[in-house]
Design a protein around this nucleic acid. Structure first.
Lengths: 146, 146
DNA sequence: ATATGTGCAAATCCTTTGCATAGAA
DNA sequence: TTCTATGCAAAGGATTTGCACATAT
């Protein structure tokens, strides 16, 4: 643990780059949305709405909780984020929207990416009639040994 | 759709059988716990706390919401049920505690079991150092075509 | 008897909503 | 302008909690 504690380094993406990405996806790039994008699109990560809100406020941004939720849901609906529900009591948003899987460490809450090539199926079931697949989600539940 | 609508037939397990199962798992078999067990252990199913509560009340049982939650959580902690979090806004409890997987139909909320033999892995990732696996969860997200 | 469970209502926590104001095109 | 987004606080919904009373062994 370094002098910054466990805080991730506040790496941010370029504002104009984010604004362009939002426009390209039919999203009006408001100041708040761009800031949310700067945080999330900087690297592959999993953040809860509250974590995003806290990071924004720590940076001195003026944003409401409602706008953070609106923005995260909007980004997810446009395919810029992937909403995850691995935890009973809080959702999180994954900035990696390419196909991949997860380790979920139950006793720490950690979420770790599994590269798509690290899991291969030898067999998958036929889909129930009248349905189409939206994707296969794999979560390997872990416990960190003390 | 038959004359009972979509209601599952209220198949129940034998009270004494359930009481014995609870005792065998170190659980004091109170009237409420036995009734919850009668409902859930009757067959493989996925029920939310609220669905269990409604079914109990429909049967005329005197049970509180708190007790239903207490009981479902207790059963889960003893391995008699498996808690599932596939939905953002409600958890459910799976009475099938043997290894298996799920189809989740997003637009209807349906949860369908996938037999363990219907999914096989050709490759799985090495676990992160210092962790042990609690199991692999696979959810195939579906959409039912209208 | 004594420990443990239950019911009730209130408290929590996450997320959404309604509406007046502010900002984007 | 005219449409859309934001902030705030309140509403909503699932789950938990505190405590007096009831039940199990």
């Amino acid at each position: 643990m370094n002098s910054d504690g466990d805080m991730a380094a506040p790496v941010l993406m370029d504002k104009k780059q984010v604004a362009g990405l939002l426009r390209a996806n039919g999203i009006i790039p408001t100041a708040q949305r761009v800031r949310v994008g700067q945080i999330l699109f900087a690297r592959d990560q999993h953040l809860s709405a509250d974590e995003v809100l806290r990071q924004l406020r720590a940076e001195g941004a003026r944003v409401s909780k409602a706008t953070v939720y609106n923005t995260l849901n909007l980004f997810s609906s446009k395919g810029l984020l992937r909403a995850l529900n691995l935890d009973a009591d809080r959702g999180s948003f994954d900035s990696n929207t390419t196909p991949h899987f997860h380790f979920h460490v139950e006793n720490t809450g950690e979420l770790i990416d599994v590269a798509p090539g690290d899991i291969e199926f030898a067999r998958l079931p036929p889909l129930p009639p009248g349905t189409e697949s939206l994707g296969v989600e794999v979560v390997i539940r872990l416990r960190r040994r003390g």
